[in-house]
Design a protein around this nucleic acid. Sequence first.
DNA 1: TTGTATGCGTTATCAG
DNA 2: CTGATAACGCATACAA
Lengths: 348, 348
Amino acid sequence: MGKRITLADVAARTGLSASTVSMVLNNRPGSRIPEATAERVREVAEELGYAPDRTARGLRTGRSEALGFISDEVTITRYASAMVRGILDAAEERNHAILMAETDNQARRIDNAVRLMRTRHIDGILLGLMRARQVDLPADVGGLPVIIVNGHVDGYSSVLPDEHQAGLDAVNHLVAHGHRKIAFIGRAAEHLEPRISWTIGRRLAGIDQAMHDAGLGFVHEVHGADWEPELGYRGADEIFDNAEATAILTANDRIAFGVYLAAQQRGLSIPADISVMSFDDEQLASYVLPPITTMQLPYLQMGRVAAEELLARLDAPLSGAGPDGPPGETLVAMPLIERGSVAAQGAS
Amino acid sequence: MGKRITLADVAARTGLSASTVSMVLNNRPGSRIPEATAERVREVAEELGYAPDRTARGLRTGRSEALGFISDEVTITRYASAMVRGILDAAEERNHAILMAETDNQARRIDNAVRLMRTRHIDGILLGLMRARQVDLPADVGGLPVIIVNGHVDGYSSVLPDEHQAGLDAVNHLVAHGHRKIAFIGRAAEHLEPRISWTIGRRLAGIDQAMHDAGLGFVHEVHGADWEPELGYRGADEIFDNAEATAILTANDRIAFGVYLAAQQRGLSIPADISVMSFDDEQLASYVLPPITTMQLPYLQMGRVAAEELLARLDAPLSGAGPDGPPGETLVAMPLIERGSVAAQGAS
DNA sequence: TTGTATGCGTTATCAG
DNA sequence: CTGATAACGCATACAA
């Protein structure tokens, strides 16, 4: 129940005034204070365990050194929750606090969260989405800087996974392992709608481009918008029946999981009989046998990058060009997580 | 960049003084203000979109209506992250903000988080753990109320899953389905150590008691402290070779997953040939075929209950007995998630 | 019934 | 070089 130590306390203890102590502790360029007294102030502050009251400081300066993180449902969506960690880590490094709220993307709750946070003087807003898609920000952010994490809102900057490159990398990984007869499961026109997905189009474009660049075409393609195991199961069956693929590329891990089931049922071994390569790196991907080689959605890193970018913007001179500029996209690499589901293939 | 509306603004607009407006908006019992003017104040406040500045208010009142949530790694541990959501939801309902930090349970980072939050005047602390175990709280919380979520710290109240009841329920579910020849995988002395697990002992005790109450003993038991698929795979093999179990109870879902693998390899069908019942309800449990019937670790609910309990304690008169009392444990029910892995068994 | 004065802990301005 | 003094926005004891 220790009474809080205030500036006045350390002032009294040093015999100096509060303003002097404040100057020293913030080493303001305004006036040169003799190193002797400055040192003494710092000593006493340390000794007393003085820590500035951020709310009082915030009231005075208008800056709180706190960021708001508003998400739709990254917390409840298990595989996206690492985004939170990335943000927390970056904020901690810069001694900033994170205020958090989750809204299920309901306008009313978003609005509420923004208002609540603004009354608490946050310096900026991070809006996080579980799936990368376009949404609206119905709330009045009152001129606060905003960065969208894993999504898109018209007029704001965002941090997104580099899906195009991931598409390239995935195909190239298969090609590099000697695969030429590749099948694909999961193409769907629906996903090209920005409000369904802002990035899947790029993933597909990357895949197509890499195939084209390698002079290949898919030996079989299974379309489908519902990216669940069921599709993978059905799709793999179809592929086994109609094509001689040596590798199956799936649009996500859940589809890949369905492929595993189908393969198992037919007595086909992965990767000896058929290689599987996928996207997302859900928990699932690491638990099946063999674990799935997949392109990871870098939630942790996206959170970190977004927070760092927001902090950088806050540092920039208020009106200067700085890292402000027009809203843009920062792409975060999707690492290739190499596990056991892709085998080398001799020249076919 | 709309200038903030302050109490002074609405005072000026109504022709009243700031204090009067303040009284009305907080409807203080101090003095009765004529409904006419009160109404007018509320109207103007609404019209101007006035929202009290919480930092200023906090500075004055000492209460911030913000809670700190410090966790070890619930965010990065995918299946525990729902705890965050439970806390956020409860806080939102009460118009409280949540400040969040994650520490990997490192003393330095915990201390840092507590200090950072205290300088921001939080009203209380929620300390969340990914796995229910005993830890220390090395930081000086300065008399702030603290509640531990899913864990134990000497001297503090906590919210925990009701593992004993879950143990009873799991066994009873099997028994109710006619199973008498039950095997168990996952007993381990190591887990009885409080700093490894605060609750597994209760889970096991519940299991044992229910078996005893049903007049049964396990037809086979596989010990093992490393609760991963490997143990389930090995354990199931052992059981298939040595016993005639109709059901296998596993200490967690990952073990159960290993059992699935072993069963598949032997051409045994779940649940036709062998039933499987488990604990935790990881994502994994819902993806395998058939999905696993399991006792859910109620992270969402634990978060919610803990936050509500902390808020209730804050409401209580500072010194009164209230819901304060000696540190205690609040148990949250672990729901039985019935899926497809347990079949009814005729009298054996 | 309502207004005035004061303070919460800081920082910033401006004299001394 | 340093110390009063004011102000941030609000709530409250007290005076009117």
